[in-house]
């Protein structure tokens, strides 16, 4: 492996879980739901994916279980916030605490066990090319899924009727309701999508990034994803830029230390946050567009008139 190739591979690995968790949260937020439980859904995806892969021996089953665990957690959130109309912020925080605790409990039985590693895709011919082969054609399915899902979300939100309904629900739920859309159902679906991608992000951590179960292994990535969504002003493309920029600065911070360039590591550790926020704020310079993208009903409960 050449040096550049190793760096690119590590950057993609660092950015993928952030991108996945953020793109799902973006959809939930565009529908008007603020789910602060990303970290909790993610860690449940990590343990769900690890456990299923370990028991069955199949990494792909692990991926499916990770998604399932994320969706399960998100449906719990949806039931509480949409059906029982509980406070979204408090419920989201509780979901994170619940997920961290429950995953630790389940994970007790899986600590120290060898994980099942999700194998990289191999495209005959293409994967063997120098540099571009492994970087572009030798990733695992979750990495490709993260890119495909981002493109899909961008397209659906901007160009399709479904996207319009989601945005209407987030922009003004009373109007959407008056137009005959089932606001609660739309939000249930968007929350579940957010859970699916957060679970997948967690599965990526325990199946590909560091194929093992370690308690609390998400280590705050869910919160970074949440911040990415806000700072990208709810635009899918910017979320992707933010996630990859964060991953790049993060890895370069480690890399420059290894080659002996003299920058304070404390500064290097904070740079991913600073640069990503600065870049996204600069990118979001168009006030009008920001206002259009911001879901006006974000975090507000909706109770349909009887």
């Amino acid at each position: 492996m050449t040096g550049l190739e190793a760096i690119l591979m590590t950057i993609i690995a660092a950015a993928t879980p952030l991108l996945l968790a953020a793109i799902g949260e973006l959809v939930a937020e565009r529908s008007g739901v603020l789910n602060l439980g990303v970290e909790g859904m993610m860690i449940m995806g990590a343990i769900g994916g690890f456990a299923a892969a370990y028991v069955s021996g199949s990494a792909m089953l692990g991926v499916a279980a990770a998604v399932g665990a994320g969706v399960g957690m998100s449906l719990l959130f949806a039931f509480l916030t949409q059906t029982l109309v509980s406070n979204q912020v408090a419920t989201g925080l509780a979901l994170t605490l619940f997920g961290l605790g429950l995953s630790g409990l389940i994970g007790e039985a899986f600590t120290g066990l060898p994980g099942v590693k999700l194998p990289p895709v191999h495209v005959p011919g293409l994967s063997d090319l120098p540099l571009v082969g492994p970087v572009l054609f030798g990733q695992d399915v979750i990495v490709y899924a993260s890119v495909a899902l981002t493109a899909l979300v961008a397209w659906v939100l901007a160009r399709t009727r479904i996207g319009l309904v989601i945005r209407a629900t987030g922009g003004n739920h009373h109007s959407a309701h008056a137009l005959g859309y089932n606001v609660i159902a739309v939000r249930y679906a968007c929350i579940a999508f957010g859970g699916a991608t957060a679970g997948l992000a967690g599965g990526y951590l325990s199946l590909a990034y560091t194929p093992q179960w370690i308690e609390n292994m998400t280590a705050g990535r869910g919160w970074i994803a949440l911040a990415l969504v806000v700072f990208s002003t709810w635009a899918p493309r910017r979320v992707a830029v933010g996630a990859y920029l964060f991953g790049t600065v993060w890895i370069m911070g480690l890399y420059v230390q290894g080659v002996g360039i003299d920058i304070a590591p404390q500064l290097l550790a904070s740079l991913p946050y600073l640069i990503t926020i600065a870049a996204l704020v600069a990118l979001s310079g168009n006030r009008l567009l920001t206002k259009v993208n911001t879901p006006a009903c974000l975090g507000q409960p909706f109770v349909p008139d009887r």
Binding site: T10, A219, L254, P265, Q266
Partner: peptide
């Protein structure tokens, strides 16, 4: 030496090891 500025972050520790 690579300083990761954390005591516990499996992902970041793994990144440092890879680098």
């Amino acid at each position: 030496v690579v300083w990761v500025s954390t005591w516990f972050d499996p992902g970041k520790e793994a990144d440092a090891a890879k680098v």
